[in-house]
Structure formats: structure tokens, C-alpha cells
């Protein structure tokens, strides 16, 4: 690959500070990469010789595996570090962990961390590219991107679409990346959920607040349904999971009550019967597994672009002609 300046800059920390052009270029770059995963031999030499560390301070299956597939299908060398059994649990600070990795000469770090701002903190301290795989309650940019790609696949250009994020926005990094990305691309964005789980000042970000999920279904072209973490009930934010499902759950009856065809996304993992009913998750409105498939392509695109690849050369790079 031609080593040139990445159109994204050194790191991918969040969608808030990307331009709409940068976001679109990631989505466009993901298009040719989709096909790699459909091949019999799912491997191209785009990132041959690159070393990538997947540094996960919080449990994750979907995101970690998705990144790992993306990296391996682009021929990068990868190492996985998770918090249990690593030096992290021995009390090493984030700075020291990062510096030690850097001392082994790596090219990129994909990091998930429980503290908001951790990805930026790391990015400011090491020369390697940092990809944020979720930092606390801040952002999860590749999830936001794969949501955008999935919406675009099914509903065409994002501009003008009405997208409502339903659920625990307060604690959700997925919500923030969606809000920032969708607004940049010209969507109308709303949030709907218990007021105890909506952050103060959310409307000032330029989103509409919808009180009841029935109204949200009526208003929206697309629903992005967030996971309700079970701790929230213990924290007293909602009285019970049953009540949450009654009042805020996305059910088939609620979708059938409107004439139009609403698209339903969920970042996973789902609590069936809590925020989303099984007949929705498994039904015709759902594109939840398409999201997962797109996740690999979007992450390939991000890895390729951060390594200095240019969007217009992605097709050639994939064929091995530009490696």
C-alpha cells in the first residue's frame, strides 16, 4: 500500500470530530470490502506486515471478534489482550500498558475501556494509530459507522431520514456516536426513553426528545434500539424490567400499529423481551444481523484508511494491485 497521510488523521476516537466527507468516505470505502467476506478465501494482503493490538479492558465478544476478523482478512498480525489475566489487573496504569506495547513497535491499537475519554488519552500519548472500540459512555465510532452503513443499505441516503434512538441514552456510547454521525449526514434524530436515562442537555445537541415509544414508532423511519443493562434496574433508573418492556419495549404490536415499514436496528447483545421483543428481532423489520455483517466491512475500511489507504484506491488494494 502507498504509505500516505490518512484521510482520517492518526486515530479514530469518535464521530463528533469527523466531517461528513470523512464519514462518507469510510462508508464508501467499506462497500468494496464487503465482498471479501463473501469469498471462499477471505484474505487480501492490504495490511500485510502491520501489527495490531486489540486491547480490551471490558468484556466484549461481538466487537472484538469483528475487529479481529477485519484485521485478519486484511492480513494484519494481531494480538489480543483482555483485562483478565493481563498486567492490567496487576495494577499497571493505562499509560504504562500503552508505553510497553509501543516499545514492542506496533502500528495500531484497538481499545475498549470503561472510562470516557480513555481512547483520546491513549491517542495523545502514543504514536501508533488508536481506534476507539468503545470508551465508557462516550463513543463507539465503528458501531455508529456500521449503523449508518446498514441504514444506507436499506433506506438510501441518510440525509432527510428520521432516526429515533430508543432506550438508555445516558449510559450509551452507541447513542452518542449515532447522534453525532446521523446529524452530520443530515438525518433528523430523536431519542426516546425513560427520562431517568436521558442525559441533561441532550436536546442541545440538536435532537428531538420523544416521550412515548408509540410516538417514536409513528415518527421514525428507523429505530435504533439500545440494550438496557440489567444494572440499571438495580441502580433505580427503572422500576423493573417488566415495566420497562411494557412502557418502552419495541414490540410487533407497536410496529404493526403504523402503516409504514420501520427499519429496526440493535447494537447487541439483545435482551429479548426487555427492550426488544423476539418477534421484532427475528421479524421482517429487523436488520440486526446485517449490522453485524457490515461491522466487519466498516472496520476493514477504518483500518485501511488509518493505515494511509486512500478511499479511491480501495478496490485496487483489495485486488492486491496496490499492496
Amino acid at each position: 500500500m502507498n504509505e500516505s497521510v490518512s484521510p482520517l488523521g492518526k486515530d479514530l476516537i469518535g464521530l463528533e470530530h469527523l466531517s461528513s466527507e470523512q464519514i462518507l468516505s469510510i462508508l464508501d470505502t467499506a462497500e468494496p470490502f464487503k465482498e471479501i467476506s463473501e469469498r471462499r478465501i477471505k484474505k487480501v494482503p492490504v495490511l500485510r506486515g502491520k501489527t495490531i493490538v486489540n486491547l480490551f479492558f471490558e468484556a466484549s465478544t461481538r466487537t472484538r471478534v469483528s475487529f479481529e476478523f477485519a484485521e485478519k482478512r486484511l492480513s494484519a498480525d494481531t494480538v489480543n489482550i483482555s483485562s483478565s489475566g493481563s498486567s492490567v489487573v496487576k495494577g499497571e496504569t493505562l499509560v504504562d500498558t500503552a508505553r510497553n506495547l509501543e516499545a514492542m513497535r506496533i502500528d495500531m491499537v484497538v481499545m475498549r475501556h470503561g472510562s470516557s475519554g480513555a481512547a483520546r488519552f491513549l491517542a495523545e500519548r502514543i504514536p501508533s494509530s488508536v481506534i476507539n472500540a468503545g470508551d465508557g459512555q462516550h463513543e463507539h465510532p465503528t458501531q455508529g459507522l456500521l449503523d449508518l452503513l446498514t441504514i444506507r443499505d436499506h433506506r438510501g441516503p441518510i440525509a432527510g431520514l428520521k432516526v429515533c434512538i430508543v432506550g438508555d441514552v445516558l449510559h450509551s456510547r452507541v447513542a452518542r456516536s449515532n447522534i453525532f454521525g446521523l446529524l452530520k449526514l443530515g438525518a433528523e434524530v430523536a431519542v426516546c426513553g425513560p427520562p431517568t436515562l436521558l442525559p441533561v442537555g441532550i436536546a442541545e445537541l440538536g435532537v428531538k426528545v420523544i416521550a412515548r415509544v408509540e410516538e417514536a414508532v409513528e415518527w421514525a423511519d428507523v429505530l435504533n434500539v439500545l440494550r438496557l443493562q440489567l444494572e440499571r434496574m438495580h441502580g433505580g433508573y427503572v422500576p423493573s424490567l417488566r415495566e420497562y418492556n411494557r412502557i418502552w419495549g419495541v414490540s410487533r404490536a407497536r410496529l404493526d400499529a403504523v402503516k409504514k415499514d420501520v427499519l429496526v436496528l440493535h447494537p447487541g447483545p439483545m435482551n429479548r423481551g426487555v427492550e426488544i421483543d423476539s418477534d421484532v428481532a427475528d421479524g421482517p423489520h429487523s436488520v440486526i444481523l446485517n449490522q453485524v455483517t457490515n461491522g466487519v466491512a466498516v472496520r476493514m475500511a477504518v483500518l485501511y484508511l488509518l493505515a494511509g489507504g486512500q478511499p479511491e484506491r480501495a478496490e485496487a488494494a483489495k485486488q492486491g494491485g496496490d499492496s
Partner: peptide
């Protein structure tokens, strides 16, 4: 402080 900045940064606020 609880407000727009805390919401943007994903940091819990103190009202």
C-alpha cells in the same frame, strides 16, 4: 458539571 459538555463527553454530571 452536569450540562451539555458532560453529555457530549459521556461523563456523568454533578447538577
Amino acid at each position: 458539571n452536569e450540562g451539555l459538555v458532560s453529555t457530549r463527553l459521556g461523563l456523568r454530571g454533578k447538577p
